[in-house]
Amino acid sequence: MPKILNVRNLGKTYTSGSKKLTVLDAISFELEEGDTFSIVGPSGSGKTTLLGLCAGLDDANSGTIELCGMSLSDMNEDERALLRNKNVGFIFQDFQLLPTLTALENVCVPLELQGDKNANKISIDLLDKVGLANRMDHYPSQLSGGEQQRVALARAFSNSPSILFADEPTGNLDEETGEKVVQLLFDLNKEMGTTLVIVTHDLDLAKKSKHILRLKGGKIIANQSTVQA
């Protein structure tokens, strides 16, 4: 199977005053297309930093990342933005919907960036799939947390991404709503054949993916496969 994400010897340090803080150290792993992958670990273990680097949101200090066959370190910010637009979807803990756009407009944006003439139709279908057909003209402030995350899901899948990064997707939701969102996430993932990378504290959620990468103090302490139900 072709590799969609290939991380080699990745390192990231931050400087605070005269102190150097190593957040990630010698991280290596790879993912095949269609894989589901969870990154778990305690707070401050470097999970979110790893996700940001893999998605090309930040630059590493050492090591290499190949996303969709492209080396991120060889690309400038705009090229990485285009790569994300074509191949990457995102889901965040705090939803990150554009507050001045309606639910439908939020879902349309990635498609509109690609110049897709059917942006509206595809977005309406996706909102219908996540059960928000009747709320598409509402602004984020008029939606509940669960509804906002479902809009975020629709937006994340709107450009049919090859890979989807989810940062604590249920972190801001109650258990029941969280479960529904997770179910939706895995259903859409299965339907579209997307590779899924989830950063989470929730071990139950992590166990739903094929692989779990455990981090502690910026280092990998385990990279294991799970037994799928």
């Binding site: 705009d78 933005a81 994300r84 637009n85 074509k86 995102f90 990150q96 554009l98 944006v109 960036l113």
Partner: peptide
């Protein structure tokens, strides 16, 4: 967010 989902700086 816009940059994250693929908008360029320009």
């Amino acid at each position: 967010v816009l940059k994250c989902i693929g908008a360029t700086r320009k």
